[in-house]
Design a protein around this nucleic acid. Sequence first.
DNA 1: CAGCGTCCTACACGTGCGTGTAGTCTCCTA
DNA 2: TAGGAGACTACACGCACGTGTAGGACGCTG
Lengths: 215, 215
Amino acid sequence: MATAPDPEDLTARARIRDAAMRHFAEHGFERATIRGIAETAGVSSGLVRHHFGSKQALRDACDEWLVRTIRRLNDQAVADMRAGEISNYVAAARSSMLPHSRYLTRSLAEGGAGVLFDEMVGMTEQWLADYVKANPEASEVNVRHWAAVITAMALGVPILFPHLSRAMGVDLTTSEGDLALSETLLHAYSNPLLTRQEAAKLRAGLAKQERGEPR
Amino acid sequence: MATAPDPEDLTARARIRDAAMRHFAEHGFERATIRGIAETAGVSSGLVRHHFGSKQALRDACDEWLVRTIRRLNDQAVADMRAGEISNYVAAARSSMLPHSRYLTRSLAEGGAGVLFDEMVGMTEQWLADYVKANPEASEVNVRHWAAVITAMALGVPILFPHLSRAMGVDLTTSEGDLALSETLLHAYSNPLLTRQEAAKLRAGLAKQERGEPR
DNA sequence: CAGCGTCCTACACGTGCGTGTAGTCTCCTA
DNA sequence: TAGGAGACTACACGCACGTGTAGGACGCTG
C-alpha cells in the first residue's frame, strides 16, 4: 500500500519539489520563498533555480507532478475496483488525495491547477452518466454543468477546512473529526434541500426573470 | 434599492477602504500593495498608514466593514420578506453578496473572514431548523455540522468561479451564464446523489472502519 | 490670533525577495 | 588522461515592498 516513490526520487530535484509542495501547501505560493524551500530540501537556493528556472516554473512542475501522481493513483484504484479488490472507490480516492489536499486546495483557490479541476469534473461526469442512467428523472440538466458544480461544491469542504473545523466545533484533523465530517457528508449527499416541485417552481421564476422581470 | 452609502463615506478613509477591497479582491492580500491601493483611492501611501496603521489592520477593517454591510443588507432583506415585499430570499441574499463576493471568497480561501463564515453557518442553521421540522426523517444529524458543511459546499462555487466557468464552457459573468448556473444549482439542490439506503450502508461501513478495520 | 489636533504628503530606511553570475566539484565518456 | 557537461554553491544585484519620519495645510477652539 506504501506509494512507491518515483525512480527519479531521492534526487535533489525530487527533494526540492517535495519541499516546494509542502511550503506552497502551508504558506501559499506568495508567502513561500525559494530560500525556505531550498533549506527544507537541504540544498542551496541557486540549485532550485538551476533545476526549475523560476518560482512560477517550480509551481508548474509541482502541479504537473501532482496531476501525474493523482492520475496514476486513480487509475490504480479503478483497476483495483474492477478486479474486485476494493469496495469503496470514494474512500480510495480520498486517501490518495489526502496527502496532497492542502497543496491542491490552495492551488485551486489561487486559480491554479486547472488541469486537475477539469480532470475531476471529467471523473464526476462519468460517474453521473451512470447515475442518470439509473435515475432518468434527473436527466433534464446538462450533465457537464452538473458535474462541474458538484465538483466545485465538494472542493469547498477541503478548501474551507479551517473554517469548517472551527464552525463545527470539532478538530477535523483528528479521527473523530474525520468521522463526524464523513457522516455529515453522507447526510448532505442523501438529503436534498429542495423538493423537485420546489425546484421546478424556482426554475420557472428564473425563466420569468430572464424574460425581463425586474428583480 | 440603491444602497445608500454610509454617511462616513466619500471621505478619504472610505475611498481607501473601497480601493483596498477592490485590490484585495482582484489580486489577493499578498499581491495587493499599499501603494497601489493609495493610487486607486487618489491619496498618498502614507495616508493609508495614517488611517489604518498597517496592511493587516487595513484588511481587518475591510472584513469588519463587510460584516456590518452584509448584516445590514441581510436584516433589511429579512424585514422586507416579513413585510411580504419580496418573495425570493435567496435572490435577495445573492444580490446583496454579489458585489463583494470576490473579496469575500478570496478572504475566506485565504483563511480570513471567519466571522462572516460563522454568521453564514448560523443563518443556514436557522434555515435548516425549519427544514428539519418539516422533514423529521432528516434529523439524525447534528444540525450545526450539517449547516457548516452546506455552507462550505455552497461557497465552493464562488470560490472556484473561474475554474467552474471554464469547466462548464460558459462565461458565468454573463446573464446567460448566470442563468445556467442557477438552473444547475437548483438541480443539484433537488437531486440527492445517494439514496438514504446507500447512505445508511456507507455509514455502517464508516462505523466498522472506526472500530479498527484496516483501510 | 495663538495653539493644537487632524488630515495629508513627500521622502527616506531597511529588508527580504527573485533573480543573475561566476566558479567548483563530480562523474561520465572518448 | 583530457575534457566537457551537469550538479551544486556562494554571493551579489536590483527592486519593490511595508514601514517610519518630518513637516505642511486646514479647521476648530480658547
